[in-house]
């Protein structure tokens, strides 16, 4: 989108529309320039800048005007950084996933949409694992990926069943928090 363009997603029915539109006009060019300097690619910078504003609007609509809006550029940089990390994580996971799938015989090759679903699921798991303690990671994977029952998980990890329950609950709380932050369906 050209610098100075309007927000495009805001409408008169949106109570935050006018304010966000002004906000967008005031900072979009700066953010795209900042990202371009960091990424070395104006196209990629424009994509990330747009995604940043989309995400900020989503949060605005969901949570109302946050205090961080008083420092708009700091907020934009924080959100943009998060998006870049997500993008890189997805690239890493996608590459590793494709490498694993490339080992399959052609007759077992999944459809493209199933492949993309797997990549998305692994990206989300990856994000969850980064938010929980190492033992909870182990428990969560044994439950969610391997589908093992509690007693077997407890045996493999070497902890009590109650500890497995606590760890798994912590992992699901992290999932829920991430889903809220990231807008997962």
């Amino acid at each position: 989108m050209a610098a100075g363009a309007s927000w495009g997603r805001a409408s008169q029915a949106d109570p935050a529309g006018d304010e966000l539109d002004q906000w967008y006009r005031a900072h979009h060019r700066w953010l795209a320039h900042w990202l371009s300097g960091k990424l070395g690619c104006t196209h990629q910078a424009a994509d990330v800048a747009q995604d940043t504003f989309v995400k900020v609007l989503g949060r605005w609509r969901r949570d109302g005007l946050p205090a961080a809006f008083q420092q708009p550029r700091a907020l934009l940089v924080t959100v943009a950084r998060g998006l870049l990390v997500d993008q890189w994580r997805r690239q890493d996971v996608e590459r590793a996933c494709l490498e694993a799938l490339a080992q399959l015989p052609p007759e077992h090759a999944p459809a493209p949409e199933a492949r993309m679903a797997a990549v998305q699921m692994l990206c989300r798991l990856h994000a969850v694992l980064e938010r929980i303690a190492p033992r909870a990671q182990q428990v969560f994977l044994l439950s969610q990926v391997d589908g093992l029952p509690g007693r077997e998980i407890a045996q493999r990890v070497g902890v009590s069943l109650a500890t497995v329950e606590r760890d798994l609950a912590a992992a699901w709380r992290a999932c829920l928090a991430l889903a809220r932050d990231e807008g997962w369906a």
């Binding site: 077992h108 999944p110 199933a114 679903a117 797997a118 699921m121 997962w184």
Partner: peptide, 15 residues
């Protein structure tokens, strides 16, 4: 959304 799709071709150990 956090379950391995059955038709994705990846076994748990590969995931």
């Amino acid at each position: 959304g956090l379950a391995l799709p059955a038709d994705c071709g990846l076994a748990p150990d590969q995931a």
